[in-house]
Design a protein around this nucleic acid. Structure first.
Lengths: 255, 255
DNA sequence: ACTTGACCCTCACGCGACGTGAGGGCCCAG
DNA sequence: CTGGGCCCTCACGTCGCGTGAGGGTCAAGT
């Protein structure tokens, strides 16, 4: 049973941490096993394990160990800590976004000689790509911020980039097909995960794609015959399935 | 003029770094002033400063110092470094986004007091948990006595409880994987012991789980695609392996 | 010539959250 | 009684510097 008296190794395995980590938490007094065997072995009681469980949980949220210590004292309301932590993490994200932008401009400078040409894109995407389609798309979306951001990024993508992007798109679609073939509903974990992967793909390769924005895209897949045709050619009903999975995924991230 | 011979203080001011940083770059050989005055003062030439400028630039892009060193050798094209760095930074951003999501759900949970809420369960179980899945499960099993008993118990479980339960589940699964990887058959002692541990886990945490009842569960792991997928994602054939180990374990306890 | 204050030098420890041995006991099965 | 798998306590390494301590150098003012 797990009710009593575990040693470091067992505790480590159960909680997904290393023995050294437990030693460390003991050293700094964060999680102290309340007993030792005569031989000096650490013995973790049920109480110790509860405390450890919380420590592990908060560490996953990125809290520093000393913050966790004060947090577990309970003297200050937990939500305050959470709010501060949220702000700190978001600030870091913003910094890193700017780093990405900086890298992008560096690459733009570095590769002014060779972004991929239309001809190369035709080779990579085959039937899926044509200059007319590109023009059509631009006429419809050219005004949007997403388009501008996407254009700014994609214009310096090399053939290597595009090859990888195409592979990502295909594996993304395949994930939907697999879920559909397995009889899973669009609200299933597998389908929603596929939707989330698709969103991340767009977000990292083309433009900032929030879950709300992704809903719009999903709706378009069933409303716009050009997109619908692409999906229906693979499986009947796939366009609607993808759209529903996207909405389900957005729902679960909305709260 | 800036054409010749600057000392650390001046260089530091011009490039927005500290004197200590220049000392550090000298120590590790990243930017070595090519001269010294008779008194031992560092003297930075124009060449040194060009190198320093690049170092400062790349550091702002988040490169590690040793990466910068190899990068400045010029043996590998710069764009490759940039691409890798971009990918790495974006990956970090994605991680941190998920941390923000987790914090949000935690805060939501904390607002409405005590026993663990759905939001907290999402933080703890991550992708493995969703309210829809719970509803699905309830529709299928809600009539059973096991469900009622489980519901009665779990509704009082706190986040600490659930964190520990998750750890138990994982170490339970790991035991099966270890036996399987070691080439042991489902009828082996190790596999059967893993099955027994899993049964005791359910028995103590959720509902009375006899060996006969456990057989049913085992069959479901291979029959119900939701369960099967969870196991197959870890190792191909694991669902069947677990099912067989459960039956073997039930057999030996039957006599 | 002497002092002052701003600059420079070389150690060397500190941070955060552990990783990674080294060197040595404890315990149980064969 | 021996082997292997646990456990223990040091204690240094990581990464990019910050922050002194203790002491020399230099140009300007007295």
């Amino acid at each position: 049973m797990t009710t009593e008296a575990l040693t470091v190794g067992q505790v480590a395995k159960q909680y997904g941490v290393t023995v050294r980590t437990l030693h460390h938490y003991d050293e700094i007094g964060l999680v102290r096993p309340s007993e030792r065997t005569p031989a000096g072995y650490r013995v973790y009681t049920q109480q110790d394990l509860e405390r450890l469980a919380l420590v592990v949980l908060y560490r996953r949220l990125g809290f520093a160990l000393d913050r966790i210590a004060t947090l577990l004292d309970g003297s200050e309301p937990l939500v305050d800590h959470l709010r501060r932590q949220r702000a700190a993490v978001q600030a870091r994200i913003e910094e890193m976004r700017q780093v990405v932008d900086a890298i992008d401009t560096m690459m733009e400078a570095e590769m002014s000689e060779r972004p991929a040409t239309d001809a190369e894109l035709k080779v990579i995407f085959g039937d899926g790509y044509s200059e007319e389609r590109q023009q059509e798309a631009e006429e419809r979306w050219g005004e949007s911020g997403a388009w501008a951001q996407s254009a700014a990024r994609t214009k310096r993508y090399t053939t290597a980039d595009w090859t990888q992007i195409k592979a990502e798109m295909e594996s993304s679609t395949l994930a939907f097909v697999a879920a559909m073939d397995a009889g899973e509903p669009p609200t299933s974990e597998a389908a929603m995960e596929a939707a989330e992967a698709a969103r991340r793909h767009i977000d990292s390769r083309f433009y900032d794609c929030s879950h709300e924005f992704h809903r719009m895209l999903g709706d378009m897949y069933v409303a716009d015959p050009r997109f619908t045709a692409t999906y229906e050619a693979i499986r009947t009903g796939l366009a609607q399935y993808v759209r529903d999975a996207i909405h389900a995924n957005a729902d679960r991230h909305a709260q």
